[in-house]
């Protein structure tokens, strides 16, 4: 199916009648996925939104259940259900890949996370292939392709040729049954005066300029737990949580509660392995008390531990942390340093 850029607005407003549709846009100076309405101007030229779409599945604050004591003094606990049909329109391939990582965490290994699952089942991912990766993008190096998003339900690839009116066209393909079914709603917006064959979609030749080599990185890291690199590298880290909060795959959380008189709600919220209190135990012992231990944990988890456990790297190469770290502690520089480290593996 070919979709012209000029029909997007109509499509989005149709879609938003049956689901909550999120599109990349700038709101209050921050680029993120914004709930579509007629007043929102989607901006598909944003390569990576500052905030990743992860919070649509894993909100920064997720209320889990309410509790209290009933009139007879019997304690009760009742779940909070808040899943809705959601369409994320214009996810980048790296963000789609990040959902794959989150699926591994929340849906496998013996325990299924109920609230994540409820949201995940009602999520439709519409991906948009990248034509112009940002200078901080390095997804190629992490085994991704900027123009392919296998897990997405629907993939939009900007087509190379534009017609006389200068209107960009997208080649639309369903990649899952769910996507196929969803396309029924799109039919009336497709370009009828042309066919798929007339368009050459953006090709695999699109590539990030920033490149790192992941060869041997995981294996080397297995032997680098006690390497001096962590102490050196962590000196400049100020242990804020920026990298973990803008990361599309960071999924660590805390569980806390909010009480009002005799009732309350327990929620889970994002937490960061960079924070001292994250691993501090009652009684004061902290297994990751030092800054270097925490920095090591973050990078080892991304580049080594997660791969050992789930078979994929927990970094998708979106470059958000590279861009937002206030002290330029750059994961790509770290990968280079690991590559250069004289460690047998």
């Amino acid at each position: 199916m070919i979709l012209r850029h000029s029909s997007l607005e109509g499509l989005l407003s149709t879609l938003s009648t049956g689901a909550r549709v999120y599109v990349p846009a700038k709101a209050d100076g921050v680029t993120k996925f914004v709930l579509y309405s007629s007043s929102v101007r989607p901006d598909f030229s944003i390569t990576n939104t500052t905030m990743p779409p992860k919070d649509l599945l894993f909100p920064q604050t997720q209320h889990m259940y309410r509790y209290g004591t009933d009139a007879e003094g019997v304690p009760y606990v009742e779940p909070v259900h808040d899943a809705d049909d959601v369409i994320v329109f214009g996810m980048r391939p790296c963000d789609v890949r990040s959902i794959e990582c989150m699926d591994d965490v929340f849906l496998t290994k013996g325990f299924v996370d109920v609230s994540y699952q409820a949201k995940r089942e009602r999520l439709l991912m519409v991906a948009m292939a990248c034509t112009a990766p940002a200078p901080t993008c390095f997804c190629n190096s992490m085994g991704l392709c900027p123009t392919a998003a296998p897990l997405a339900d629907i993939l939009l690839r900007p087509a190379g040729a534009t017609d006389a009116s200068g209107d960009t066209a997208y080649l639309v393909e369903a990649q899952s049954e769910k996507g196929q079914a969803a396309l029924a709603q799109w039919e009336s917006y497709k370009a009828t005066d042309t066919s798929d064959a007339d368009f050459e979609p953006v090709s695999a030749a699109v590539s990030c300029s920033l490149k790192v080599s992941m060869v041997g990185v995981k294996d080397k890291l297995e032997a680098m737990f006690d390497h001096p690199i962590w102490e050196q590298l962590s000196k400049k880290c100020i242990t804020c949580g920026t990298c973990t909060f803008v990361c599309p795959t960071c999924h660590c959380f805390d569980i806390s509660q909010e009480n009002r008189l005799s009732e309350g709600t327990r929620f889970r919220c994002w937490d960061s392995c960079m924070f001292t209190a994250y691993t501090e135990m009652a009684g004061g012992h902290n297994p990751r008390a030092s800054k270097s231990a925490r920095v090591r944990q973050r990078f080892m988890h991304k580049l080594c531990f997660f791969e050992q456990r789930y078979g994929k790297t927990l970094c998708v190469g979106c470059g958000r942390c590279v861009e937002k770290c206030p002290v330029a502690l750059d994961i790509t520089c770290l990968i280079d340093q690991i590559g250069a480290a004289d460690v047998a593996y």
Binding site: V105, F106, K109, G110, F111, D113, H251, C252, F253, D254, I255, R268, D271, C273, Y278, T279, E280, M281, P287, H301
Partner: peptide
Amino acid sequence: MRMKCGIGKCGR
């Protein structure tokens, strides 16, 4: 170790 979720997700 400090634990929060008990089901291998929260990370600490």
